[in-house]
């Protein structure tokens, strides 16, 4: 066992800001949707718009960071060990079995995480961003402008945005639970706060990027 610097400063900043924004967008968004009353409707709309723009700025920085550091490779989905990982959550975890994939600095995510996070990044978040922008800037049927840009009805946009929101809430709840399934109940949480985590095996050599799609098998 070796204490490793797993989550770098920007990564942690990105994670927690994103967490705060998503919670905030969720609460204000579901108020606009009519599901709950918290900020007051007018405030909810304004806050939601401001948080949405903040989120876009954060996304821009995050994309830049992922590309320049090569960290985006962490999210490439793999079939390898997917079944083993699923079986671990269904059976192994109750038998005190070891994690089927070893967490290393170069491969932080298990196969299930890779699939779910990649799904969020390429599907749910883009859908939310696009429908959100359309929601903000869509034009009612009107004259004197480019007619083909008119969106006849908000319904499809709103419904897609709502579906994405439900998925994100489900993810958020699941995520909160799954962080308790690390080495200890709080080890994942601590790691995301401090950046350091106790990992199995030798300390990694710095500035070397992970082998794509090859998580290390544990015995």
């Amino acid at each position: 066992m070796k204490k490793e610097y797993v989550y770098r400063a920007f990564e942690r900043f990105w994670h927690w800001t994103q967490a705060a924004l998503i919670i905030f967008l969720g609460v204000s968004g579901f108020e606009i949707h009519g599901s709950l009353h918290f900020f007051g409707y007018e405030n909810a709309v304004h806050y939601h718009n401001i948080a949405a723009i903040s989120f876009l700025i954060l996304i821009a920085f995050a994309i830049f960071w992922h590309l320049t550091t090569g960290e985006w490779r962490q999210y490439i989905p793999t079939w390898k060990n997917l079944r083993a990982q699923a079986e671990y959550y269904i059976f192994g975890i109750f038998r005190n079995a070891p994690h089927p994939t070893k967490k290393t600095v170069l491969s932080k995510l298990n196969p299930l995480q890779k699939i779910v996070y990649a799904g969020l990044k390429v599907l749910v978040i883009p859908v939310m961003v696009i429908t959100g922008l359309l929601y903000m800037f869509y034009r009612y049927p009107q004259k004197y402008e480019v007619l083909s840009l008119n969106i006849k009805n908000l319904e499809a946009i709103a419904i897609l945005h709502t579906v994405g929101a439900f998925l994100l809430v489900a993810f958020f709840i699941m995520h909160l639970y799954l962080i308790t399934t690390g080495q200890t109940v709080t080890s994942n949480l601590k790691a995301m706060i401090t950046g350091y985590e106790e990992l199995e095996g030798e300390p990694h050599e710095k500035k070397k990027y992970p082998e794509v799609n090859e998580p290390v098998l544990s015995k």
Partner: peptide, 19 residues
Amino acid sequence: YLPGRDYNASVELFGKGIL
């Protein structure tokens, strides 16, 4: 579609279901 008034019943059911 009027936000806050309108919703799609099956999306609502799906959402509450997965939650």
